[in-house]
Design a protein around this nucleic acid. Structure first.
Ligand code: MN
Ligand code: MN
Ligand code: ZN
Ligand code: ZN
Lengths: 141, 141
DNA sequence: ATGCAAATGATAATCGTTCTTATTTGCATT
DNA sequence: AATGCAAATAAGAACGATTATCATTTGCAT
C-alpha cells in the first residue's frame, strides 16, 4: 500500500530505518505501537535500528501525516497508521487490547457543548477504559 | 470546608505538609494543578515542603478520594479537588485555561457504544482541546 | 566514482516521577 | 510537660520515557 514514494512525497529520504518502521506499521497485526514496541519488534526480527532513530522517525512520520500519535494513561506515546479518519479508543484494562470506534452522536454533542461554552474546538481525545468480555482476554501484564 | 478531620477520616495523620497542600486546593483559584504547580506555589508563599512529599501527598489524597487525577496531553498529572461528580474537560490550547462540562447525552452514548462492542466500561477521559474565544485569553506559554 | 547534506546510532542529558534512607514529627502514654 | 515510637518528611539517588549531542555513515545528485 504505502511505498517508498510516500516518504519522498513527505520530504523524507527513503532510508533503511524509515522503510523498516513504515513497513512494520503496514504489516503488523498490532495497529497501536509505542516506540519501545517498534524498537523491540524490529530487533527481534533481526532488523537493527537505534532506539533514538525510532523515536525520531515516529515523530517525523507523525508530522508528515503518515502516523497518528495517541496518549493513553500509561504515560507512553502510542502510534498508529493514519487511515485518514477520526476515531476514538476503548482500551481493555486487563489485556491492553485497543478497540476503535466512531460515534456520530458523540462527535456532534462535543461540537455543540464546546461552542456553547465559547470555545472553537480543535481536537479531542476520548479514551474509554474497560474490561473486555472477550473469553480469550490474555491478561497481559 | 475540609478540616483536618478529613485527613483523619482518610486514615492520614494531619501533618503540616498535608494541611498545606489540602488548604492550597481549597483556596486556590486554579482548580487544576500539577505537582510542580503545588510545589512552586507553596514555596513562593513561604511554605516550604519537599517536592517528593508533594508527590506522595497528592497520590495519597487521590487514593483517599480527596483529589482526582487528570492526564492531559502535556505528559504531567494534574490534580483537582474531588467534588463528587464526574465531568470532562476543555483545555484552551492558547492559554491553558481549563473548563469543565458534563453532557448526559455523551455519557449515555459512551455506555451504549462500549456495551455493543462487548466491553464493561470502567472509566473514561474526554479531553477537548480548543481555542477559547475569551477576549482576555492571556496566551500563556 | 565523488561529494556532501542529511540521517543514523551510541551515548549523555532532560523531565516528570518514584524510591531510599537518615532525620523529624504527630500523638498517645506516662 | 517529658518520653517513646510508628509514621511522615526531605534530600538526593534512581528510574523510565523521551530528546539532544555529535562523530560516523548513507542516500543520492552530480
Ligand atoms: Mn486507533
Ligand atoms: Mn476538572
Ligand atoms: Zn481484555
Ligand atoms: Zn484561552
Amino acid at each position: 500500500m504505502h511505498q517508498p514514494d510516500h516518504l519522498k512525497n513527505a520530504g523524507l529520504k527513503s532510508t533503511l530505518p524509515r522503510l523498516k518502521v513504515l513497513n512494520l506499521f503496514e504489516t503488523s497485526t498490532e495497529r497501536h505501537m509505542s516506540a519501545e514496541d517498534v524498537y523491540k519488534i524490529l530487533l527481534n526480527g533481526g532488523e537493527d535500528v537505534g532506539l533514538a532513530t525510532v523515536y525520531r522517525v515516529l515523530t517525523q512520520f507523525e508530522q508528515a501525516g503518515l502516523l497518528v500519535r495517541q496518549h493513553f494513561e500509561n504515560g507512553k506515546s502510542v502510534f498508529e497508521l493514519n487511515k485518514g479518519d477520526h476515531h476514538d479508543h476503548i482500551v481493555c484494562l486487563q489485556c491492553g487490547h485497543v478497540e476503535e470506534f466512531y460515534d456520530k452522536a458523540i462527535e456532534a454533542r462535543q461540537e455543540k457543548v464546546t461552542a456553547e461554552l465559547g470555545f472553537a474546538i480543535r481536537e479531542h481525545s476520548l479514551h474509554i477504559y474497560a474490561d473486555c468480555i472477550n473469553k480469550k482476554c490474555p491478561r497481559k501484564p
